[in-house]
Nucleic acid binder design. Structure first.
Length: 597
RNA sequence: GGUUUGGUAGCUCAGUUGGAUAGAGCAACAGCCUUCUAAGCUGUGGGUCGAGGGUUCGAAUCCCUCCCAGAUCACCA
């Protein structure tokens, strides 16, 4: 039982004993005491005034006295206005710290035999252009979410749906055919996804030019788009692809393999991975089949031109097309197929889609459609909807070249980390491999933390002109705290200080030390909140609080130099536990922490 | 226009189911390295929590109206 649970229970008893009424657990509000007041846990007594029929101060006094008299873990109390501040005895905090110290998996719940299986889809790239900062946010959120769900006792399957077919893919293929002169990653030394992306851009450039020329000849924009020869060729290519044309398929396979090689490299650098990868080219036909089945059952309707639609007006939505008049499938069709395939392959209890908030409507519709098609899990699917990454000028646009490229950004972060380390003389005495490792960890740590500390649901701004910080509320700050502690722990080992001494439970601990322990005790709750709220940001912000508090402690109190051996051991234990939490908390964010930096 | 999400310091962001004087970081300025890593620590200045009303012991948080911004409402993905 945690101290909060114990106090809730005792508070109910106290009110019953003092005022003869039984209150519901839900009426009780325990909160951590604010720093500027003395105490650990605060009870707001206003809700009990009706029962006590006394003034706030008197009620708080009554309750405080009763609780301290009847709770061994409480040392004292004080009352300010309607707030009853309870002081927990240091012996209790020491006990709690010792438990955390001895628990190698502190805060982490491992999945049992009957744990629910959660499948999380994230990343979901198109294979016609390289990844940008928006994709980075998706990947980091998805990967971290998986880690957090795992740490909460779920079985997790990380999955990716690769959008590897469709008109947009044909555009880069056509561009390469026309203007590529046979360029390959090997011939040019370009990363495959970038190479393919270049031809996507080339297609768009020529297409726009074509439209402009047609408009000059007097056509409207719509007319021009309809007769554009380039777009016509792309459409023709798509039809050939669907028909299985050998030449088109071969080109498609070749160019996709370049992109996959490029993506793999970026994924590896980002440190994300998948348990199962689906390809749209392999799932879209299942979706088509399901839709046609639905049509037969009368769930959908067919228009005169042959297109298939769902009527969602009973759900307060609109009509939604599921198959085009030429019989080809749309995005929704593919998603139905993929979902169907996944549930036939895994005993999924919950399906989570990590997809940007621009697709809120899509997932609302998908949920309804799956439900109508008879999938019991349709209603329960979770769209983990995150906000966009914006530039100061607004949204990033691939075609206008205003995207922040993922690989470039990672390169920049790592090299900045490298330079900073060098300037600060942190690389002295390290091998090249060690230096490289640290630069990687710190550079990526800065990037990942920068993104993950923001509430996922909100849009966030990235200003390319202001480089991501390495000081203050940043990943490196937290990594640095870990490295400092490791340095101390190394010295503990070297100097042969045996941490086996049992410390005195009457140690006189400072407020800072007690507060740190309090913070440590909340780590398991934070993981729980992060999983329930789908928010890595909660972990990130907690990491910062913990590191900040620890640094203050580190600055103000000697650890190894403390002469009182009992106190010294306590501080080593406090440091060790903090370091361990930083490591496992950062791991939940997908961030590695160095032992020195 | 319908639906929907947001608006907190110059900038980037926190702020549990309503609780005490709204917090960090960056930027600016002023301090702290013969002492366990200064990517650190301390201090100063900086706010009409978009606006107005309501609910109550108590509102950045809940309700209503309005203003502003984004997203979405495609035989795109």
């Amino acid at each position: 039982m945690t101290i909060n649970q114990l106090l809730e229970k005792n508070l109910i008893l106290a009110i019953e004993a003092l005022y003869g009424q039984r209150v519901d657990q839900a009426q009780i509000q325990l909160q951590p005491t604010k720093k500027e007041f003395e105490g650990d846990i605060t009870i707001v007594v206003f809700p009990f005034l009706r029962i006590s029929k006394k003034k706030p101060e008197e009620t708080a006094q009554d309750l405080g006295k009763w609780l301290v008299d009847n709770t061994a873990e409480l040392k004292s109390y004080n009352v300010i206005k309607g707030f009853l501040n309870l002081v927990v005895s240091p012996a209790y905090w020491l006990q709690v710290l010792e438990n955390a110290y001895n628990d190698q998996q502190y805060g982490i719940r491992t999945a049992g035999e009957n744990a629910p299986l959660v499948m999380v889809e994230y990343s979901s790239p198109n294979t016609n252009k390289p990844l940008h900062l928006g994709h980075i946010r998706n990947n980091l959120l998805g990967y971290s979410l998986c880690k957090i769900l795992e740490a909460n006792g779920n079985k997790v399957v990380k999955t990716n749906i690769v959008n590897d077919r469709g008109i947009h893919i044909c555009k880069s293929m056509l561009g390469w055919q026309k203007w590529g002169n046979g360029e390959t990653p090997a011939s040019s030394g370009k990363k495959g996804d970038h190479l393919v992306g270049d031809y996507y851009v080339a297609f768009d450039k020529h297409y726009k030019q074509e439209i402009a020329e047609l408009q000059e000849k007097g056509m409207t924009k719509e007319e021009a788009e309809a007769v554009s020869p380039l777009m016509g060729e792309a459409r023709e290519m798509l039809q050939k692809w669907e028909a299985g044309d050998q030449e088109v398929r071969l080109l498609w396979k070749t160019m996709n393999s370049w992109v996959f090689a490029g993506f793999d490299e970026t994924y590896k650098r980002l440190g994300v991975s998948f348990d199962k990868i689906y390809y749209e080219s392999e799932t879209y036909l299942f979706g088509k089949k399901k839709v046609l089945e639905g049509l037969e059952k009368g769930l959908f309707y067919c228009q005169e031109d042959g297109s298939v639609w769902a009527d969602l007006t009973t759900e307060g939505l609109d009509q939604k097309v599921l198959l085009r008049s030429d019989g080809t499938s749309v995005y929704m069709t593919q998603d139905i197929g993929t979902a169907n395939l996944r549930f036939s392959e895994y005993p999924i209890d919950k399906m989570v889609y990590v997809v940007g908030n621009e697709q809120n409507y899509h997932f609302q519709v998908l949920s309804i459609l799956l439900d109508r098609l008879g999938f019991s899990w349709g209603k329960g699917l979770v769209h983990f909807s995150y906000g966009m990454v914006e530039l100061p000028e607004g949204k990033m646009k691939s075609r206008e070249g205003t995207v922040v490229d993922a690989d470039d950004l990672i390169d920049e972060m790592v090299s900045t980390a490298r330079e900073t380390s060098l300037e600060l003389g942190k690389l002295d005495g390290l091998t090249e491999d060690q230096a490289k490792d640290i630069a990687n960890m710190v550079g990526l740590g800065a990037l990942k933390y920068f993104i993950l500390k923001v509430d996922p649901r909100k849009n966030m701004t990235f200003n390319p002109k202001e480089s991501i910080d390495f000081n203050g509320n940043t990943g490196p700050f937290i990594q640095y705290t870990h490295a400092r502690i490791q340095s101390i722990l190394r010295k503990v080992e070297e100097s042969g200080i045996t941490p086996s001494e049992k410390f005195d439970t009457n140690l006189n601990l400072s407020d800072k030390e007690l507060y740190l322990i309090r913070l440590i005790t909340t780590f398991p709750n934070i993981i729980n909140d992060a999983a329930e709220g789908f928010s890595p940001a909660l972990i990130a912000n907690y990491m910062y609080d913990l590191a900040k508090e620890y640094n203050q402690f580190y600055h103000d109190y000697p650890i190894l130099k403390e002469s009182d051996t009992s106190l010294r051991f306590f501080r080593i234990m406090l440091s060790d536990t903090t370091s361990k939490i930083i490591r496992s908390g950062m791991d939940l964010l997908g961030i590695n922490v160095p032992d020195r930096m």
